Simulated scan of single mutants.
Amino acid sequence: MKDAGISTTSPQIGHIMGTLTYTATVSLDGYVADASGDFQWSAPGDEVFAFHVERMGPVSTEILGRNTYLLMTYWENEPADGSWSSEEREFARRWQAIERVVVSSTLIDDDLGSGTRLIPHLSISELAGIVRDASGEVEIFGPTTAAAAIRAGMVDDYRFFVVPKIVGGGLRALPDDARLDLRLVEHRTFGDTAYLHYRAG
C-alpha cells in the first residue's frame, strides 16, 4: 500500500487561525528530485544550512511524509564519532524540540522516535486543526504530503531554495493543477542558490 498525502474527501474548512508554510529545495525547472529519485544535488552548503538553523526558530510543528521522515531521522541522534559541527548540533536540538507529525499508512508507532506522532492519512480538516492548535509556525515538508493543502489554498508561506540545476523531470515541487496568486516578501542569494519567500494573498 502506498503512502498518501492529504485526503481531499473531507469537507472544505473556513479560515485557519495559524500559519502553514511549505518549504522546498528545487531545481531551476521546479523539481525536488530527478526522474531516478536522486536529490543529492539539493544538499545545502554551509551558508544555506546556517539559514535553515535560523529558520527553524519559529517552527513548532513539522508535518512529513514517510520518506522525508526516514531521511530526517538522521537528526535524532549524533553519530558515535561526534562528528557534528556546532551548527549541526543546534539544528538537531531544534528539530528534536518540535512536534513532528508523520503521514504514513505503512509505518507503525514503533518505527518512530520520541516526540513524533503517526497518522495514516491527513484530511484537510485535520490539517486545519494542527495549524490552529500549534504554538508556532507549522511547516509541511514534501510535495506529495503538501499537494492537497496547496491546491486548497491553505498554505500561507512558500519558501523555495532554488539551486542552479536543470534535471529535466522527476518529482515536482508543486502540483501541476495548482492555481495560486503569491507575492514576493523576501529574497536573498547564497552563492548560486536563490532563496525566494512568497506569501499568499
Rank of each mutant, 00 (worst) to 15 (best):
L28K: 03
R132L: 00
L20N: 06
S85E: 01
I124W: 01
V26K: 01
F49D: 04
Y198C: 05
I108S: 15
W75M: 05
V32Q: 09
E54R: 13
L184F: 08
S10H: 08
V101D: 02
H121V: 15
E88C: 01
Y22R: 07
R117H: 14
R100H: 15
S123A: 13
L184S: 05
V102E: 09
Y22D: 02
T8I: 13
M72Y: 08
V185D: 06
G136M: 09
A148P: 03
K165N: 08
G37W: 01
G170R: 08
R199P: 03
L64M: 15
L122Q: 05
I6H: 09
T21L: 11
P143T: 09
V103M: 12
I124L: 15
H52A: 10
D3V: 02
T68V: 11
L112E: 11
P58W: 06
G37M: 05
I63A: 08
S83P: 02
L28N: 07
T8H: 08
D38A: 12
K165F: 09
E186M: 05
Y198K: 05
R159P: 01
D157N: 13
S7D: 03
Q40P: 00
I98F: 01
Y158W: 10
M17D: 07
T25D: 02
D109Q: 15
G129K: 14
G30N: 11
L70P: 00
G14F: 04
I63L: 13
S36I: 01
E62A: 14
M17L: 02
E137D: 14
D176R: 15
A33C: 03
D181C: 02
A148V: 04
P175R: 11
V26H: 00
L180V: 09
S105G: 15
P58V: 11
G18W: 08
G153K: 08
R100W: 10
R117C: 04
I108A: 15
S36K: 13
F39Y: 15
L28T: 14
R172V: 06
V102R: 10
I16D: 03
Y22A: 06
V102A: 11
V185M: 07
A97V: 08
H197Y: 03
E47G: 00
A178S: 15
V102C: 10
S36E: 13
D46H: 06
L112F: 15
R179T: 13
L184V: 05
P120L: 08
V53R: 01
S114G: 08
S86T: 11
F160R: 04
V162S: 02
D3I: 02
A134I: 07
T8S: 14
A147C: 10
L20E: 04
V53A: 04
L127R: 04
D38H: 14
V32F: 02
N67P: 00
I6C: 14
R100T: 14
A4L: 12
I13Q: 12
